[in-house]
């Protein structure tokens, strides 16, 4: 289906700007005979918010799992600050400064909000509580600090997972559908948090189906279709791209 695309179209996209903090080079992953992610390359610059969009099954989640080392790639490489991280364990990748959330929040349900954070906080144990409290405060969850994660509302769980990523102060943050099922108030808060962190130099890669939000939030969009890079550029350009419209709305 994707093979008939002219090669020149691909050469123009997936550019790796100089000084990219996160680089993906020729990343490929198959499941049986299906190629979920096919030779994907791009790089993103520190202090920016990039959107990764595409129809269902286009390979966004797989790409996230490959970048965060949750599963190994069949070929290609991921580099963080120029250092290859493809062969590292997921835990090491996180320790190198790349944090991520999940499409469906994966909290520790029988632990309180604070404990969810303290459990993953690195550094000296005596500062763990303070840092957890600061992170909870940042996302506005101080009031439910001692509540079990299982008892939190859906939106609160999303925020808690976000806080858990932030507690170790990663440079690159991958958010997997942070707005899915979240009410408008929570949505606004999440957008505000992302902007505040970007201004502090954090780098974001975000997937979501809320195109309206993504357009507003991101300075650059990368479009995946059938595991391949389809388009890459600023939101206005991508929105006007015929192939993108085709992939989303075409037959």
């Amino acid at each position: 289906m994707s093979g008939d695309r002219p090669a020149t179209a691909r050469a123009a996209i997936g550019s790796t700007p100089a000084g990219a903090i996160l680089e993906v080079a020729g990343l490929t992953r198959r499941f049986g005979g299906v190629i979920a992610v096919n030779d994907v390359s791009f790089g993103i610059v520190a202090g920016t918010v990039t959107g990764l969009i595409g129809p269902n099954g286009s390979g966004k989640s797989t790409l996230f799992r490959l970048i965060s080392a949750e599963m190994p790639a069949h070929s290609g490489e991921v580099r963080l600050r120029g250092q290859p991280i493809t062969r590292r364990s997921a835990s090491e990748v996180n320790r190198l400064g790349l944090g991520r959330t999940f499409q469906l929040s994966r909290l520790y349900p029988a632990m309180t909000a604070t404990e969810n954070l303290v459990a993953v906080t690195r550094g000296e144990a005596k500062h763990a509580l303070e840092r957890a409290a600061a992170s909870l405060d940042f996302v506005g969850l101080t009031a439910v600090a001692d509540e079990f994660a299982a008892n939190l509302s859906y939106g609160q769980q999303k925020l808690l997972e976000f806080a858990r990523v932030l507690v170790n102060d990663p440079d690159v943050i991958l958010l997997d559908e942070p707005f899915a099922g979240v009410n408008p108030v929570m949505e606004e808060r999440m957008v505000a948090h992302i902007h505040a962190l970007r201004d502090r130099g954090k780098t974001f890669l975000i997937t979501d189906h809320e195109i309206r939000l993504i357009m507003a939030l991101c300075s650059r969009l990368i479009v995946l279709d059938h595991g391949e890079l389809l388009a890459d550029g600023d939101p206005a350009t991508v929105r006007a791209d015929a192939r993108v419209i085709d992939a989303y709305f075409g037959t």
């Binding site: 835990s91 320790r95 994966r106 909290l107 459990a119 993953v120 690195r122 858990r164």
Partner: peptide, 9 residues
Amino acid sequence: VAAEMNGIQ
């Protein structure tokens, strides 16, 4: 998995 992904060894 969430433990591993959050840097717990």
